[in-house]
Simulated assay, not measured.
Amino acid sequence: MKIGELAERAHTPVETVRYYEKAGLMPAPLRTDANYRRYDDGHVARLRFIRHCRALDLSLDEIRALLRVRDDPQADCTAANELVHQHLAHVQHRMNELAQLRDQLQALERLCSQGRPSAECRILAELAQEPEGGCSPAQASGAACLGDTHGRRTPGP
């Protein structure tokens, strides 16, 4: 099958298939005499596996590690279990950070619930304050302080 059919069968954009090939997650396909890529059902299964991993927010490096285990039928799956355990801990940490972010935003929201001239806006005034000890005065209401990244990871397809 050609790349378009592979993409359709795996519900993945063609550009994403090419991206995964360049990233080394998809094996290079055979080529036809006309130099078209030729894929098989193994490529479809692998692409679906990768897409499922991405849906779980696994990084490309984490996916590579899982693919190494998947590609070796005799490999011990302890590495896969440990990777999922670590990713789950990371997700829990991000959830805690997001809860703190929510609390910070709610504290800001409580500062002003009506329209005023921007010169009198308590939200804007609060955001202009220099954070004390890395935290803004709004966090005195009990919201925890976050770092600059809020747990963000570099997105990928």
Rank of each mutant, 00 (worst) to 15 (best):
G133T: 01
P117W: 02
L56E: 09
E130F: 00
L66V: 06
T149K: 02
Q139M: 14
I123N: 04
R68K: 09
D61T: 14
T149D: 13
H93D: 15
R18E: 04
V69W: 05
G4Y: 13
R38D: 13
M95L: 15
T12V: 15
A65L: 12
R70W: 09
L25W: 02
V69R: 00
C121G: 02
A75G: 07
H87Q: 03
E120S: 04
V84C: 11
E15H: 09
L60F: 09
D76V: 12
L6A: 12
R9F: 12
Y20R: 03
D57L: 12
L60H: 03
A99K: 14
A119S: 07
R64N: 08
R31Q: 13
R94E: 01
H43K: 06
R110Y: 02
D57T: 14
H150T: 06
R38I: 14
I63E: 06
T32P: 02
R51V: 15
I63S: 03
R152L: 09
S141W: 00
D76M: 04
G115Q: 07
L25A: 05
A107N: 15
E8L: 08
L66N: 04
D103N: 12
E5Q: 10
T149Q: 08
L88S: 05
L98E: 04
S136M: 03
E126T: 03
N81F: 07
E15Y: 03
V69E: 06
A79K: 06
D71G: 08
